[in-house]
C-alpha cells in the first residue's frame, strides 16, 4: 500500500514535468505554424492529459492538470493566463471522463481527445468572457471548435498508437 503511494507520487511528478516540457514545446511549435488565429495551439501537452484520463482516476488527473497550469503560468503569463488555462484544463478533463464513462466501449481515444479539445476551448472562451465581461467573444467559439476537431484528432491518434507501448513499459492497466 505504502509502496504504491510512493510510486504514484513519482509517476505523477514525472507526468507533470512531461506536460510542462510539452507545453513549452507547444508554444514554439504553434509560433512556427503561420495560422492567423489568436491563441492557436496544437495542445501537445494534452498527450499527457489524455494518458492520465485513460490510465488514472479523476482526482490524480486534476492534480496534474492544476500543477501544470500553475507552474507554466508562473514562468510565462501570470494570473490571467493561469485562470484561462485552468478553466480550459479542468473543463476538458471533466468532459473526457464524462464521455469515457458514458460511451465506454463505443468511443475511442480519438473521440475522447476531440471532445476534450473542444471543451478545452469552451472553458477558455467562457473564462475570457467572464474576465473581460465581453460576451461578443462567444462568436470566436465556432472556429475554435472546428480547429479542435483537427488538433484533437492528432493528439488522439498519437495517443492511440503510443499509449499501449508506454503502458506496457510502466506496467499500467487502463483505468
Amino acid at each position: 500500500m505504502e509502496k504504491s503511494k510512493t510510486r504514484d507520487i513519482a509517476v505523477l511528478a514525472i507526468l507533470t514535468t512531461l506536460a510542462l516540457v510539452l507545453s513549452l514545446f507547444d508554444n514554439l511549435l504553434s509560433l512556427a505554424i503561420p495560422i492567423p488565429l489568436p491563441g492557436f495551439k496544437i495542445g501537445v501537452a494534452n498527450l499527457v492529459t489524455l494518458f492520465l484520463v485513460m490510465y488514472f482516476p479523476l482526482p490524480k488527473t486534476l492534480c496534474v492538470v492544476f500543477l501544470r497550469c500553475l507552474i507554466s503560468s508562473i514562468y510565462s503569463g501570470g494570473v490571467t493566463v493561469f485562470l484561462i488555462s485552468l478553466a480550459g484544463g479542468v473543463l476538458s478533463v471533466l468532459a473526457m471522463y464524462f464521455i469515457k464513462n458514458t460511451l465506454k466501449d463505443n468511443v475511442s481515444q480519438i473521440g475522447i481527445s476531440i471532445f476534450g479539445a473542444a471543451c478545452h476551448n469552451l472553458g477558455q472562451v467562457l473564462m475570457v468572457i467572464l474576465l473581460l465581461m465581453s460576451p461578443s467573444y462567444i462568436f470566436y467559439l465556432p472556429i475554435l471548435i472546428i480547429v479542435s476537431l483537427a488538433t484533437g484528432f492528432i493528439i488522439g491518434f498519437v495517443g492511440l498508437k503510443a499509449y499501449p507501448r508506454i503502458a506496457v513499459f510502466t506496467k499500467l492497466a487502463p483505468h
Binding site: 466501449d105 463505443n106 468511443v107 480519438i110 473521440g111 473542444a118 465556432p142 471548435i145 476537431l149 492511440l160
Partner: peptide
C-alpha cells in the same frame, strides 16, 4: 480506428459550431 461514438462526437461538435455561428449576432 474510429468507433461509432467518435463519429457521433464529431457530428455533434460540428452541429454545435454551426448553431453558434448562425445564432443571431445581436452585436454585429
Amino acid at each position: 480506428m474510429f468507433k461509432r461514438g467518435d463519429i457521433i462526437i464529431i457530428i455533434a461538435l460540428i452541429v454545435c459550431a454551426a448553431l453558434i455561428y448562425i445564432a443571431p449576432t445581436s452585436g454585429s
